[in-house]
């Protein structure tokens, strides 16, 4: 039997405390987490369970208050602002709930915007073909449907060939049918690129497409489960 691959993410006793005035909120309470290269993980949990805080830390957008957080040999706790920017730029692909495309750039240009600063990007047209938008490359975001915009966002995230793909409620703003198409695009690019993929959602139906499902509650991991077989996105509905 193969050795289990070395984990790309290692989190230990991760804590995040927000202080606003007199109010102290403990968003993460000593969380332990590991992820292997190429793993497809769905993180489920209700609002306020800490999953977004976790994504912010793992994505290099915020720093934990204490504990350990490593991406390979990058220390995400002690990294400074510039190092975190570098980390996001070189290793992380983001997909947002509201797509966050640049409205003044076409689909092609939105992807190219990222490939211009990436170290080993794929061609923008290639990334758009992966999400099935080769015919809509010259359209501006305002001329695309929500599902199409999200697929552009996925193409944009994957075009830099990231090590990690972080998706925050990628189907949150979409109807079921469109959401499924987006998930199909997501699983396709994730498999093709071999990127470790984390999808944060409160939509439990999505859990079926993952290798592993992590349940968050009260700032900690409540339980984890491993899918014996992953369902294709087309089999999911909500």
């Amino acid at each position: 039997m193969d050795q289990p691959p070395a984990p790309v993410f290692r989190m230990k006793d991760l804590r995040k405390i927000y202080r606003t005035g007199e109010v102290t909120v403990e968003a993460l309470r000593g969380l332990d987490f590991e992820a292997a290269a190429g793993e497809f993980i769905v993180i489920l949990g209700p609002s306020g369970s800490g999953k977004s805080t976790f994504l912010n830390i793992i994505g290099g957008l915020d720093r934990a208050t204490s504990g350990e957080a490593w991406f390979r040999d990058h220390d995400l706790i002690r990294a400074n602002e510039a190092q975190l920017t570098r980390y996001r730029r070189d290793h992380v692909g983001f997909v947002f709930q509201f797509y966050n495309l640049v409205p003044s750039l076409t689909a092609f240009e939105n992807v190219k915007l990222v490939t211009e600063i990436a170290r080993r990007p794929m061609k923008p047209a290639e990334a758009l073909a992966l999400v099935g938008l080769e015919d809509r490359m010259d359209h501006f975001p305002a001329q695309l449907s929500g599902g199409e915009q999200q697929r552009v966002a996925i193409a944009r995230a994957i075009a830099k060939q990231p090590d990690v793909l972080l998706c925050d409620e990628p189907t949150g703003a979409l109807d079921s049918k469109t959401g499924v198409r987006v998930l199909e695009a997501l699983t396709t690019v994730s498999a093709r690129s071999g990127a470790t993929t984390l999808v944060i959602t409160h939509n439990a139906a999505i859990a079926a497409i993952a290798d592993r499902v992590v349940h968050f509650a009260n700032g900690a991991i409540a339980r984890e489960e491993r899918n014996a077989t992953r369902q294709p996105a087309s089999a999911v509905s909500w």
Binding site: G59, L61, A82, T85, R86, R88, R89, D90, V92, F94, F96, N100, V102, P103, L113, V114, I117, R156
Partner: peptide
Amino acid sequence: GREMASLRVLGFTRGE
């Protein structure tokens, strides 16, 4: 502002 913050998330530096 929103676009710019998004670009920061995508790894663009402050300068960029």
